[in-house]
Design a protein around this nucleic acid. Sequence first.
RNA 1: GGUCUCUUGGCCGAGUGGUUAGGUACCGGUCUGCAAAACCGUUGACUCCAGUUCGAAUCUGGAAGAGACCUCCA
Length: 495
Amino acid sequence: MNPTDNKGKVLLFNTLSKRKELLSPIVPDHVGLYVCGPTVYGEPHLGHARPAVTFDLVFRYLTHIGYKVRYVRNITDVGHLEHDADEGEDKIAKKARLEQLEPMEVAQYYMDSYHKAMDALNVKNPSIEPRASGHIIEQIEMVQKILDKGFAYVSDGSVYFDVEKFDKTFGYGKLSGRVLSELIANTRELDGQSEKRNPADFALWKKAAPEHIMRWNSPWSVGFPGWHIECTAMSTKYLGEQFDIHGGGMDLLFPHHESEVCQSTVANGKSSVRYWMHNNMITINGQKMGKSLGNFITLNEFFTGSHKMLTQAYSPMTIRFFVLQAHYRGTVDFSNEALISAEKGMEKLYAAERHLDKLKAGAQSTEDINAWVERCYEAMNDDFNSPKVIAELFEASRIINAVKDGHATLTAEDVETLKHYYRVFFFDILGMKPETANVADKYSEAMNKVMDLVLSIRQDAKANKNWAISDKIRDELNAAGITVKDTKDGAEWSL
RNA sequence: GGUCUCUUGGCCGAGUGGUUAGGUACCGGUCUGCAAAACCGUUGACUCCAGUUCGAAUCUGGAAGAGACCUCCA
């Protein structure tokens, strides 16, 4: 039983083919993984947690079974176009003006906030976290490349991708299943449309309006890159013209990822992504989360319980566990009831983990531990089926408790195997971490209460002149490293 | 309206054409001075209709419902 035996056995659902495919990296033993990261202009929320946790699982598992994974997750800090009231205004620029801050100050603030939330969720840092603002040159070069190949045109300082020409040459909509003629029929009147030859065309470079704060020089105008070009430019730079996995939320499938396909196909001569993976959305009480719906809950609000829809605080690990208890391609619905039941289940798994070191070996095994390990790997190999893995951990916790209570026995070898793989799957692969800080707080809080209680019992004994009890308490506490001093104002204690 | 996805027991959620998912809740029992934990057991499901099949929650067709994207948000 060797983790690396699972290389070449990983099935993943490819949005492009709509079926599970065997992961076969372009470069043997190496996997290139690109995931669309956050736009840093707001507090991190559940919508950020889902893809981060999902692809953290992918990253952790592929690494565990021996692949060298280069995981690139970008930071979008040049904002996206806004098509409503503020014409062509950059999201980050808008927020910046409202708060009277430099745009990059805002981006920095929310990027830090995002990183803190990711740390809390025990999401590993990607191998490279490139910022869009740091790759303006690469983006300009790619736009120029697309222009040179004749699949884009300049219109009043902006550059647009010629979708119709792309459709005739390569076929448009392979990823999202959109048909160009239907798209055109359904397109609304939007900003910049008059500059476009075709309403389905999308911007590669946008000329900045006078009030637009974030702006860079380019051969076409002072402006900013289009919505989709950063991912293509940065994934090409760090993972090559062709790479293995591109991930992101399902909502990015169209138009973002479809546009990425267009851009890379023209710029690099081929569609760069082998496997497209999309995580499903999150709903709250059955409704989608949106600022306008009043059910927009940030991660910090979950961690502190400070939102009117939450009946209690939920630790970062509860959120992570809850996300992992559903398969990444299904929607996840958050409700207090569901979170509480997840929290209880999670605590059961932590309790079982604590019992592992106390297990005593027997002469023979009444449980098949090797088969259990196999099932765990099979679940992960089958499109990262974390809910199945969690179910297997519950099965293991049943075994652990049974051995502890003497209802089952395991050989010394099986005890070691169980210990090892329980921790591998719970901590290393699912990425659960002991909430040590939390635990320490709970301990010190409980300690204070215990000492209050003990000292009040001693006070009662002294009041009754029961010196034997009061001295015993003081001496025994002293022996345990706790010094008790009687003062005028009552007893004090210190460690 | 278009494209796509989904519909499993009180709640959350895996899944294979025939065999217990699992968690949580509830109920009964063991254990415990009481309680908790743990363990054992019971109850409870596959949206509806039709078809294929010896047999379908699992395949096919249809209906209903929900959600996502097309429009700010992952």
